[in-house]
């Protein structure tokens, strides 16, 4: 119904306009102002080739995607059972789990990082305990390396995954599970053939959110990572803060944006191709 669609568009127009203004506006302004500094299109092109073709940027992009990918895997592995526990919990237990999940948002990144130091440091609680128990002879390197980045990012990103999965799991009709059981499926088969597929769109959405947010991380890797754990957003931030090199920052931002948008496109395709999934 073209008229109904137009009507809906008209109703949404103020919101869309506001979103455009608030979200797209600043990025557009920044990109045009920054790239404008370079002058003509051919000059922009030259700078783009030089910046994006450099080994440094390529290494940082690879690094970024790889870290975000690992974090997504870890977050998914931890988040799925936790979200499931949340769907099963009632009353006080529910509140307790929820508070634990949302705790990262009540502390500043700085406070959190010092807490990690106390816990994960060479002389931190975990190492002290393991050394004391004789499990290890040398302290484990749990921070200021890739492990630290993954621990730190997992902690911050876990809630996005859990809350996304939670709503997907809550939407699963328990009668379908019962039906599967009644048709002879074992608990594992009920999970594998019914519950998991029905929450798959939540898994994909959660993974996508985590990955996209993860790709843009710079504080946690800077605080928890080692010398080589450089992510693209850290480079962008340095170009802005240290050298005020807006054009280069803008070009790198475009790369980040391209990665994010192409992932979103993949997700969109994925969900469109599966009519069985409630859209």
């Amino acid at each position: 119904m073209p008229l109904g669609r137009l009507g809906a568009l008209l109703l949404l127009a103020p919101t869309l306009l506001l979103m455009l203004l608030i979200f797209v506006g600043p990025i557009g302004w920044f990109l045009s102002a920054a790239l404008g500094e370079l002058g003509s299109l051919s000059e922009i092109w030259e700078e783009a080739v030089a910046t994006l073709g450099s080994r440094t940027i390529l290494a940082a992009i690879l690094n970024t995607n790889w870290i975000a990918f690992l974090v997504t895997l870890v977050v998914l592995a931890l988040g799925y059972p936790l979200a499931y526990a949340l769907t099963r919990a009632k009353g006080l237990a529910f509140t307790a789990i929820l508070v634990c999940i949302l705790l990262p948002y009540f502390t500043s990144v700085i406070v959190r990082t010092y807490a990690w130091m106390v816990l994960l440091g060479r002389n931190g609680l975990i190492n002290q305990a393991l050394l004391g128990l004789g499990v290890i002879q040398q302290p484990l390197e749990l921070m200021y390396n890739r492990t630290g980045v993954i621990i730190g990012m997992t902690y911050v990103l876990l809630p996005y995954m859990i809350l996304t999965l939670y709503s997907a799991m809550k939407a699963v009709d328990p009668r379908l599970l019962q039906a599967a059981e009644g048709m002879g499926a074992s608990p594992f088969e009920v999970f594998r053939k019914v519950f998991f597929p029905l929450t798959l769109h939540g898994v994909v959405a959660g993974a996508l959110i985590v990955f996209i947010l993860g790709v843009g991380f710079f504080i946690t890797p800077a605080l928890m990572g080692g010398p080589g754990d450089i992510m693209i957003a850290m480079l962008i931030e340095r170009e802005i803060e240290l050298t005020q090199n807006w054009p280069v920052a803008a070009l790198m931002t475009l790369v980040l944006l391209a990665v994010t948008l192409s992932l979103y496109a993949v997700y969109h395709r994925f969900s469109a191709e599966r009519p069985g999934l409630a859209a």
Partner: peptide, 29 residues
């Protein structure tokens, strides 16, 4: 448990699996 009883069932709301097509729904048991 239900799976050890070998019964066929039709549910009030049909309980058709939304992620499976008709063939796979019927093939489920």
């Amino acid at each position: 448990p239900p799976r050890a009883r070998g019964l066929g069932m039709v549910f009030q709301n049909y309980a058709i699996f939304p992620h499976l097509d008709v063939f796979e729904n019927v093939a489920f048991p």
